[in-house]
Amino acid sequence: MLDKAKRIPVAVVLAPVLAVLLALIVGSAFILTVGESPFSAYKVLLQESFGSMRGFATTLQRATPLMFTGLAVAFAFRAGLFNIGAEGQLYIGAFAAAWVGFTFTGLPKIIHLPLAVMAGMIGGAIWAAVPGLLKAKFGIHEVINSIMMNYIAYFLTDWLVTGPFQGSTMIPETKRVAASATLSRLMPPTRLTTALYIAFAAAAVMYFLMWRTKLGYEIRAVGLNPTAAEYGGINVAKITVAAMAISGALAGLAGTEQILGLNNRFIQRFSPDLGFMGVAVALLGKNHPVGIILAAVLFGALQTGAAAMDRLTSVPRELITILQGVIIFFVAAEYLFTRFMKSKGEA
């Protein structure tokens, strides 16, 4: 029996690794078509993203927001909810953090920074709680609502940064946040900040909450079998709203990191689809905090290496987008594969 208990995690770990390896092989074919050696291209990629402390720091810096959005999507997913609105929650969280950052100047950092971070989480939480509530109260599917909430977030922040909160320039962005609200850099000149620690802490909190507490027990029960959860005295509506809100808070942290750690102001439509990338990260990371950190680092490394590969070889940086897509394809295929194996095994 013990060996069986151990066998499951092996498969869980092996499958994503396999997906990545297969993606690299498929990527090789593309590299060959532009007349480059896959080995040298991948070597450049690896060297750039992991070969030096500086490169590694950049990898981690790019991975940080993906850790937050990955955790956000995974948290909702455990409750059986597909939060595709992480992008909008990220924008609202980012704006809330920026607003606290440039409004409450003159506070000491020890108060101002946590306040701004809290604001980012609350902003994201509120934005996600709306589709949660609509699902719980009226049964409206969260995918539809969270997508629509994305658009509301885009246009709301568009208006905010071109209207009431536009900075002094003609550029659509807010004022700079006060220095007392910025995250400290860990390794200048790289832009890696203490947000990385917050991401690790968020992953640890998610693990603890999900697998060590009553709330986590209830969230997972709702995700696996809502009718049985209801029978077991769990308030499914309350759990739905709570899980969405926590998911949104995590997405809000991604936006917060972009403001307080990277841009130091809210720039219109700043996010390169970090919220949607979170879906891919969660999928590859098997909705587990540790897996999500690793998946985020992988995606961060691909992005870091992309520029160098573009510069030093004839492989265009778009290869990275292909790789990301193929990874997701194989992870999705793996779900089909395991289901296939299961039906064979039970036969």
């Binding site: 997972r220 029960a221 696996l224 079998n225 009718t227 049985a228 959860a229 029978y231 077991g232």
Partner: peptide, 9 residues
């Protein structure tokens, strides 16, 4: 299956 158990628990 529907009410009494969370089968994956």
């Amino acid at each position: 299956h529907r009410r009494g158990l969370v089968l994956d628990y």
